[in-house]
Design a protein around this nucleic acid. Structure first.
Lengths: 118, 118
DNA sequence: AGCATATTTCTACAATAGTCGAAGTGTCGG
DNA sequence: CCGACACTTCGACTATTGTAGAAATATGCT
């Protein structure tokens, strides 16, 4: 993920409604949820939901598929993964595990410093 | 970090100029950089720099201290850490390490996220 | 005190983002 | 083919954010 993509993804998540949508979809997993259900749960009009969920879709954070009449949205973990990778790589101290959030089980080897030959 | 704080932090980073500022400060470490130097390096007017760096300061992502006439800004790794923690906790599958970016030394990290940033 | 430097705050404007009803599009059941 | 349903797109408006010169504030030097 490059700088521009990161800005886009961050902007997509930087909104109450969209973060709520994304978290809801993350909780649901690959199965996803239909647009109508999301809108109803959040108590927002369908057109507003569509506006926001498409923002997330445009930047790749959610996938879209049709199931008969409904459009099912689901979180795209790969892109979220890339975003977190970008942030840890570029927005944390380079030498240290100074910014290793919920993930220092035992190893803590900074993935970056371990660039083993491909 | 709660939902609202996360949205604020994400919004702060979701802008080309601010992300550039933050990355510059991350690269510099605790020593930080003065407002003037940052503005000059980015080629933006002082008032614009002030606007953006204060946005980052307001949400806690950068610290501010005075050194004689200059105001020195530095990245606040704690808050960045909290943000990453929030994202991994709330925006990734809860059961799985489905979204553990730079936390697996050599295993699952996608080849793309491993390339060193230029 | 008076002047230079570093940075912020003010101000006015430009641009972008968000809201939501209404109209349009795709899909199914009969 | 028609009507109902699920959702999106359009359109018009409001609100928020970004930009940058000019004026103001803070600090230091002599």
């Amino acid at each position: 993920m490059n700088n521009g993509q990161a800005v886009q993804a961050l902007a997509a998540l930087a909104h109450d409604t969209r973060l709520a949508i994304f978290r809801m979809l993350v909780g649901r997993g690959p199965e996803g949820l239909s647009a109508g259900v999301i809108a109803e749960r959040l108590g927002i009009p369908p057109s507003s939901l569509s506006f926001h969920v498409q923002h997330l879709h445009r930047v790749g954070l959610v996938t879209q598929r049709r199931l008969s009449r409904q459009l099912i949205y689901a979180a795209n973990f790969n892109v979220m993964n890339s975003l977190l990778g970008f942030l840890t790589e570029n927005c944390c101290g380079r030498d240290a595990a100074v910014c290793t959030p919920a993930c220092q089980p035992e190893a803590t080897v900074t993935a970056r410093s371990r660039r083993r030959s491909a």
